[in-house]
């Protein structure tokens, strides 16, 4: 799943996929703006066929947290 997420991330920001880790923060490290990040979450919903709760969005700061949350929705 990390590779899938990385491939989506590089549609939004100009970063080398090799520099993206589970600890990478979307806004602080990868340079996402608020709109970029919200749009990214919508793409995640389509890609993984999940529905992200608005109240959980504030807890997703890192790539790892995004992966964990998606997995919890799929379980």
């Amino acid at each position: 799943m990390l590779e899938q997420i990385k491939n989506i991330i590089v549609n939004y920001v100009e970063v080398d996929t090799n520099t993206i880790t589970e600890d990478s923060e979307f806004i602080a490290d990868l340079g996402f703006s608020s709109y970029d990040f919200m749009s990214f979450l919508s793409e995640i919903e389509d890609e993984f066929d999940v529905e992200i709760d608005e109240r959980e969005v504030v807890k997703i700061l890192t790539v790892g947290q995004a992966i964990e949350y998606i997995k919890s929705l799929q379980a």
Binding site: N11, Y12, V13, E14, S33, Y35, S39
Partner: peptide
Amino acid sequence: TCARRATLN
């Protein structure tokens, strides 16, 4: 207003 420009494209 929301400028819908998120992806690089």
